[in-house]
Design a protein around this nucleic acid. Structure first.
Lengths: 192, 192
DNA sequence: ACTGCAACATACGCGTCCGTATGTTATAAA
DNA sequence: TTTATAACATACGGACGCGTATGTTGCAGT
């Protein structure tokens, strides 16, 4: 909230994503969001041109906070690629940042701009994670396969699997990490 | 179509599922479906009580044709469990029968009855496939793990992975089949 | 105290969708 | 040929969502 309890555009974006995740795209309409925020439509059309703009900015907001922000946080206080990768999948798995993933992919099935956003996000992620694996001395092709495995897993985990206990989630994360970061047959050591 | 080009309830259900898959749940409304079928609402309310009934019957129709029907077809002309399993994943992967899978799961995120339907379908599938693996002499616990892997894969394949060529899809199917149906360490042979 | 403006609220017309009530038509049965 | 009815079409009232036009309010600066 802003000063005097008045709203910023970001408050509408957050509420939009929250509602998309909780109740579906059909509930992401101007009047319903206004009711949830305790204001009227007049407020909305002050901050946004129209409904379409809201959706577009929601997608951009999600893409920004989810890719750049998470990547930057993973890099901070990490000394090497292995550590960055571990922090990355930990953040995605344990924090709420991955919550909107499934909802947005579901919406993107029938929205061209959403699909475009997701493609860009996926490519950014893939490039970054592939880079981490090459930094771990994996060959380029192998690095990309491992990056894809990590990426697809993170996406599918939220959409398909039943919710596990916190301890089991941690165990699975560790196993996944070990599997993906160790394979001595395909490693590309400069000394050999 | 029926005699004299008039519609059956099933025609509405099919069009409903098609529209759900192609354009999303918000397009699955009475007047839009009527336009697509070349009739008016009067026809709809002859065949169905209301919109809610349509959705419910769509889910039931999907559950029937997808679980029972596919299972029965897999069994036909198969001599053992291995063959049934291969036919099953072949049908799901190559035919259009798996097309509505992702759309319905997306819709189920915010519809209680849809979630209930999916749970039942998943359980039926899991029971059946687990039975196939126990018939292949895998131990109960191992059979269930393999069944889950097969099941989750079939679901995730449609929603996440990029579309591969027909040849690559066939190769992947074969590899998946081999991996899941052979593991001599955990096999439970009566003779040993 | 007065003014200006950001951030709303209110009121309206419009289109779309729902569900109902009632009118229409082609065909099968008599 | 008449009749009954299945399968529609038409017309309506109401709810809801969009976007616009305009009215209102509280604070910030002077």
């Amino acid at each position: 909230m802003n000063k005097r309890n008045r709203l910023k555009a970001e408050d509408w974006l957050k509420q939009g994503l929250e509602t998309l995740d909780n109740e579906g795209i059909h509930k992401v309409n101007v009047e319903y969001l206004a009711r949830q925020l305790g204001v009227t439509k007049g407020s909305f059309y002050w901050h946004f041109k129209n409904h379409e703009t809201l959706i577009r900015e929601m997608l951009n907001y999600w893409a920004r906070t989810l890719t750049i922000n998470v990547i930057e946080r993973s890099i901070q206080d990490s000394k090497d690629a292995r550590e960055i990768f571990f922090k990355l999948i930990t953040i995605i798995t344990t924090e709420k940042v991955g919550r909107y993933e499934v909802a947005i992919r579901a919406y993107a099935r029938h929205d061209k701009k959403a699909r475009s956003t997701i493609r860009k996000v996926d490519q950014q992620r893939l490039l970054f994670i592939t880079g981490l694996f090459t930094d771990m001395n994996f060959k380029q092709a192998d690095a990309e396969v491992r990056a894809r495995l990590a990426l697809y897993y993170q996406v599918a985990e939220q959409g398909i699997f039943l919710k596990e206990s916190k301890q089991k989630s941690k165990d699975l994360l560790k196993q996944r990490f070990d599997l993906l970061t160790t394979n001595h047959e395909s490693i590309d050591k400069p000394g050999c």
